[in-house]
């Protein structure tokens, strides 16, 4: 027991502070991905409702591809593909040496593309639930289209979409564990490194699991609070 505490303590002896730094990286990746993925997802959802068959066809293709390909594979394709692309551009412009893509950016883009595909389904369902009369009423009051979306449609949209988007967030939080394979120093990366140097995998992967579980419970609680707040105008 004393050994466990020493290994997980803060400072030179233990890995506690390193693990907490890893947790910060995990949360940063997830938080950085969220706005990018959700905005892209909303755009894809609006595209899938477009009258143009090309635009709605693109949205269908996008969601099919990114919902069907393993996240790990998407991550590798973005990371290595981005690497090769940037290198070609760099050499093509006549510069020497090598340029590398940051793992954080690659992880954020890959996870964001996947999140966009999954969240677009949630957005579509929520958009369908809003009666056309809401937009018409807003127009009759003299609101512009942008104002109508921001002041009338969006608040109602969020109320319907939140449970689904909350699920998307929980999935995203767990998927961030994959960025450790492209050398981002998240919880999993630190736990693996601690395992290599101390040969105590059971302790460190248990600690990692506990950290993830804590964040999941915290998120579930936070999402529940947000749902209550968004539903405050409705009688159950």
């Amino acid at each position: 027991m004393e050994k466990v505490l020493t290994l997980l303590s803060f400072g030179d002896q233990g890995w506690g502070d390193e693990l907490l730094q890893g947790a910060m990286v995990t949360i940063s990746v997830a938080l950085a991905t969220l706005p990018f993925g959700l905005t892209l997802g909303l755009l894809i959802a609006l595209a899938s409702r477009s009258k143009s068959r090309w635009i709605s066809g693109f949205a269908t293709l996008y969601t099919t591809v990114f919902r069907g390909v393993p996240e790990l594979l998407t991550l590798y394709i973005i990371y290595f593909g981005g690497q090769i692309l940037i290198q070609r551009l760099w050499s093509g412009l006549g510069f020497e040496g090598s340029l590398s893509i940051s793992p954080f950016l690659a992880g954020m883009v890959a996870l964001g593309l996947v999140l966009a595909a999954f969240s677009s389904e949630v957005w579509v369902g929520a958009l369908n639930s809003i009666h056309i009369g809401q937009r018409e009423g807003a127009a009759a009051l003299g609101l512009s289209r942008g104002q109508a979306f921001r002041l009338v449609v969006f608040p109602q949209l969020m109320r319907v979409a939140l449970p689904g988007l909350g699920n998307n967030w929980m999935v995203l939080l767990k998927e961030t564990s994959l960025v450790s394979v492209i050398t981002l120093h998240d919880i999993m990366f630190i736990a693996t490194r601690a395992n290599v140097s101390t040969k105590e995998p059971f302790i460190f992967f248990s600690a990692a699991l506990a950290l993830y579980f804590f964040f999941s419970l915290l998120s579930a609680w936070g999402i529940g609070r947000m749902e209550t707040r968004l539903n405050r105008g409705y009688v159950r």
Binding site: M170, K174, E175, S180, M188, A191, T192, F205, L209, F213
Partner: peptide, 9 residues
């Protein structure tokens, strides 16, 4: 509530 990768490791 926890990643499968971590459970597997």
């Amino acid at each position: 509530g926890t990643p499968l990768l971590c459970q597997l490791f």
